[in-house]
Amino acid sequence: MFHQTPLKTATVLLLAGLAVAYGLSTGFFGLELLTEVAILAILAIALDLVAGYGGMISLCHGALYGVGAYAFGSATVLLGWGAPAGLAMAVGGGALFAWAIGAVTARTHGIFFIMATLAFGQMAYAYLFESPVFGGNDGLPGVPRLDASALGLDLNDSLTFALTCLALALLAYAVSAALLRSGFGRTLVGIRANEARMRVLGLPVWRHKAAAFGVSGALAGLAGALAAQHTMYISPGLLHWTVSGELLIMVILGGLGTLVGAALGAGVLVFLKHEVSRFTDHWHLVVGLVLIAAVLAGGRGLYGQLEHLWERRRAARRAPPETPAPDEETTGHA
């Protein structure tokens, strides 16, 4: 179940503070990285919402991200409706596509769910790859950024854009946290814990699963619209299943089912990739080994491990020293 613990709040504030400090002190290239991290953090939070709390391990979040980017791109470049309409279409399109996937796949579980989401994601990828309307394999260049001069912001400035993305990532976190603390969020966790029991209690399980997937899709669509504005170019590569795979890596590196961990994982993976590529071309090897090590180490992820240690220390402090909790050691290895 989701709790906005003091540790979580502190981590969110620390990460946001670090990101702002990094943004203010770095140059153009650092800002590009920071923007990428902020956008992927939104996407990772969206994935953690369904994977960590709903038990729905999705391999189609790359596709939802891409659908958002293409919705924004077609609204601005192809239809000329402007960026605000593009944003709305990206969020709405992502939500709608995700809701449909969630509704159709609600009956499948485990590996079948993973494969079903993969199938829908790859369908979207294959369609956009072939479709001449959306530029096919070449993608769509010349995507404009939102004109926010009414708010006194110039989004074509790297720093402003990076900070805007960061603010939106915080907003995505706040929305997800609020949702998980609501009755709907508790129901979602209940479905993950025991779907049969929730069904027996009279809950329309599929509707909750689809709705959760829809919300996740809306966030992913937002991330896609931001990514389209960031690089000002979109291509079918955004939708490929390996993007979804890398997202899962981020979530597991940071800590599945912690929300803030997903954002942390996005930051760690982007900077790890960047740092490793300075020394060698073979960043895949390093990331692969780090991932395997992270899962073998217990799969809690960075934030999950921190939270685990924190809880253990608090439990130890609460228990009187002469009678240590007998199962403390065993739970440590569970």
Partner: peptide
């Protein structure tokens, strides 16, 4: 995840 890591390796 582990076998995805293996793909990368």
């Amino acid at each position: 995840l582990v076998t995805f890591g293996l793909i990368f390796v």
